[in-house]
Simulated assay, not measured.
Amino acid sequence: MNFLKKYIFPALYGLLVYFTVRLLHDTDINQRFWERRFYINAVEMTCSAIVGYLSIYIFRRLFKYYDKRWPLQLSYWGVVRELVILVGASLVLVNVIFVPMDMALHRGDWKAWWIPWADVADINMIPTLYAIIYYGIARSSTWLKAYVNNKVQLEKLANDHLETELKFLKAQYHPHFLFNAINTIYFQMDEDICGAKNSIEKFSELLRYQLYDQQQQVPVINELEYLQSFIDLQKTRSSDKLKMKVAFDEGLNGQQVYPLLFLPLVENAFKFIGGDYEMAITAQLSGNEIVFRVENSVHPIKQPMNTNGSGIGLDNLKRRLDLLYPNKHNLLIVNNYNNFFGEIKLQYE
């Protein structure tokens, strides 16, 4: 295979150029080149083979130069630049060999220092066409590799950007959680030391889950257990008027979800509950979706968010859902005069 590529193919390339030129030229003047004197054809074919060897050698050297001189990056300008250099080298070569050959073989047909413009066009256009074709075939694997590398780099940059943004969102969320939890324990210590100790234990469990279980998806049962611990912790400082309903579907077990996506709705409910002090937290399976709902009454004056449903915790939740579940989630926020409703639908894996 290497012998064919190195020794046979260049000659065939040169002869292909020669026979294409002869076909176009002889068709135009109604001539059959095989009826000419043998030595003319022999000289032309020999020179064409030499052009083939030199062309392939120069092209391959240029390809090595391209790879060494310029980084592997697919771009329109890069292709044009390489083609201009390659075509220029090809034109110089064919004019150095074919033009003197044509003048010498047809010295008696026209002036020694002049050849017809039709011959000049054939000598330049046909080799240029084949040089471009060869370039396209020979460099296709290189440009495909550059394309794949570019795509990989773009995806890596996008993933790095998303990971950085997720870390930033989590960094915003952690202080918010710590403040609420510590504030809860602080008020409890004045009234119930034993209860405060239990709250600290629950708080440590919650913090451990946040610190060690955020990088990958987790079984939804782990997330629900975490929510239950958070609810128990928050109930210790809630009003005695609180009427709460918590219902988790028993079918929710090993389905994989990203952690800490349900918590902002629960935290928001405890923060802004008022009015009739009613709260309902449910999670259930619906087809291939996990549906998580939080509904709570609010004081008519103390609204949990503005009319657009914004707030730091919920804004972060929206962004995290967009990053982690693109086109695979639905977030519904309804903020009425004395009631707040939030729903997350996730397509689990």
Score class of each variant (00 low, 15 high):
Y337N: 08
K156S: 12
E163I: 11
I273Q: 06
K302L: 06
N198C: 10
V96I: 09
Y130D: 02
E343Q: 13
V96P: 10
D67H: 04
P71C: 00
E223N: 07
N308Y: 04
V96D: 07
F203P: 00
N335A: 06
C47D: 07
M305V: 00
P127S: 06
F187P: 02
L206I: 07
L324R: 13
L15D: 02
Q303H: 10
E205N: 11
G309L: 02
H25M: 03
P326I: 04
N95C: 09
V257K: 01
A104H: 04
I290G: 09
G52V: 01
V218S: 11
Y76R: 12
G311Q: 01
N183E: 15
H329T: 05
L263Q: 10
G287N: 06
L346K: 11
L72F: 03
W77F: 12
E289R: 10
I301R: 11
K197M: 07
V80N: 07
F19C: 11
Y337T: 09
H174V: 15
Q214Y: 09
V43A: 09
Y57D: 07
A158K: 14
P300K: 12
G274E: 13
Q172T: 08
E165W: 07
Q234H: 10
L317V: 08
L211H: 07
P300W: 02
Q188F: 08
L162P: 05
I333M: 08
W110P: 01
K328I: 00
L169D: 02
L4V: 12
E205Q: 14
Y209I: 04
Y325K: 15
H25V: 03
L263H: 06
P175Q: 02
K202T: 11
P259M: 03
N253S: 14
A49V: 09
L4H: 13
A112V: 11
T307D: 10
K245W: 01
F230P: 13
I344R: 01
I273N: 11
K318C: 13
S297K: 00
R22C: 13
K345W: 08
S229R: 14
R293S: 13
V79L: 14
W70I: 01
I221D: 01
